[in-house]
Amino acid sequence: MLILAPMEGLLDFVLRDVLTRIGGVDRCVSEFIRVTNTLLPERTFLRIVPELTNGGRTFAGVPVRPQLLGSDPQCLADNAARVAGMGCDGVDLNFGCPAKQVNRHGGGSVLLQDPEVLYQIVRAVRAAVPAHQVVSAKMRLGFNDDSTAEECALALEAGGASEIVVHARTKADAYRPPAYWHRIADIKAKVKTPLVANGEIWNVQDAINARAESGCFDLMLGRGMVTNPGLGWAIQAHDASASGLPAPARVVRWQDLPPHLHTFWQIVSGHVSERHQAGRLKQWLNFLRKHYPEAEAAYMHVRTLTSPKDIHAWMDATRANPEHATQSA
């Protein structure tokens, strides 16, 4: 199982749509939906997870699991019941966000300091969500250190989580390498709930190493997939080869990406405010150039553009001549 990670401000429904069209992942988790003291209206869930109008799946048919973030067990349970009723395979709970603003308001990784609260939240949500739908959770190794990693995972399991994604860093580690995959193996020795390894998986060798050190076959891919949209297929090809099976013939080259950049821009143009549209394209190209040398010229050209009209013109030029995307201004 390869899962596309939630990443606030980056991996939203736009990039989920495009990356799942390219393929190679089996499921997605949405960026977090903040729950405070109220039962959110359906329009709030639809704004963050518009796939709920498509049976909880992306355009390409990949399931998307909405993720909730909050600290009040009953309020989270009420909102989980509502979003579960809108059509999805289950609900995910965020115990990993390291953002200071989120933690200051009692959400995300700060909850890892109190395993009892983790237990109460998962138990309440599990009771509120229909039995045929999954309740999963994402955690880090801890807040300031990883001394309670196993205790936190046991609390999630006791509450009824049927899958736990472990980002192999603490909140204090933020996104700095390395990821401590071996600590997931320590957790795995204590819990029976299926675990998914996450963190610093940028290429096939990282995936191999993460599996070996964590003891988990299932992986969650975040920035690695944004940087290399073919990463899921590459891992699947390795798995097939290791099993003596025919490898999927999917290699995502730079010259394959212009149509997907066009799709990305079309969705951004239709759903993102005009003043943020150019920034979204620049953001993705900035990631892509870390893997594709050819993306450097595209990024250097687009980074000077601020008008959607100018980017439309650039997109039209690349549609007529894909080589245009590799030519500098």
Rank of each mutant, 00 (worst) to 15 (best):
L2N: 01
L4A: 05
L4D: 02
L4I: 01
L4G: 10
E8V: 14
G9A: 06
L10K: 08
L11Q: 10
L15I: 13
L19D: 09
T20Q: 08
T20E: 10
I22P: 09
S30L: 05
E31L: 02
E31S: 10
I33P: 08
L39P: 09
L39M: 08
T44H: 14
L52E: 11
N54Y: 02
N54D: 14
G55T: 05
R57L: 10
A60W: 06
V62D: 06
V62C: 08
P63R: 01
G70E: 07
D72K: 12
D72S: 14
R82E: 12
M86G: 11
M86E: 10
G87F: 07
D92R: 02
L93R: 03
N94G: 13
N94I: 06
G96N: 11
P98R: 08
Q101D: 15
N103E: 13
Q113K: 15
D114M: 03
D114P: 09
E116F: 01
Y119Q: 14
V122C: 07
V122R: 02
V122E: 07
V129C: 12
V129W: 09
V129I: 07
P130D: 13
V135G: 13
R140H: 12
N144E: 15
E151S: 05
E151F: 00
A153F: 02
E157I: 04
A158G: 07
A158N: 07
V165I: 14
A168E: 06
K171P: 08
D173K: 02
A179C: 13
W181G: 09
I184M: 12
I187D: 10
A189E: 15
A189Y: 04
K192E: 14
T193W: 03
P194Y: 09
L195D: 12
N198Q: 11
E200M: 07
W202C: 01
V204R: 00
V204M: 00
N209Q: 14
A210E: 10
R211V: 04
E213D: 14
E213V: 00
S214E: 12
C216N: 11
C216D: 10
D218I: 00
L221R: 03
L221V: 06
R223P: 14
G224V: 00
M225T: 13
T227I: 11
N228F: 01
G232M: 00
W233H: 01
H238E: 00
H238P: 00
D239K: 00
A240L: 04
S241C: 06
A242P: 09
S243F: 00
S243M: 09
S243Q: 15
S243E: 14
L245Q: 15
P246I: 02
P246L: 05
P248W: 00
P248E: 01
A249F: 01
V251R: 11
W254V: 09
Q255G: 04
P258R: 07
H260C: 10
L261H: 05
T263K: 08
W265R: 03
W265D: 11
Q266E: 15
I267D: 11
V272M: 04
R275S: 11
H276M: 11
A278F: 06
A278L: 05
G279W: 02
W284T: 05
L285Q: 07
N286I: 00
F287L: 01
Y292G: 10
P293D: 13
E294T: 04
V302P: 13
L305M: 15
T306L: 03
P308M: 04
D316G: 07
T318E: 10
T318Q: 12
T318D: 04
A320I: 03
N321P: 02
P322F: 01
E323D: 15
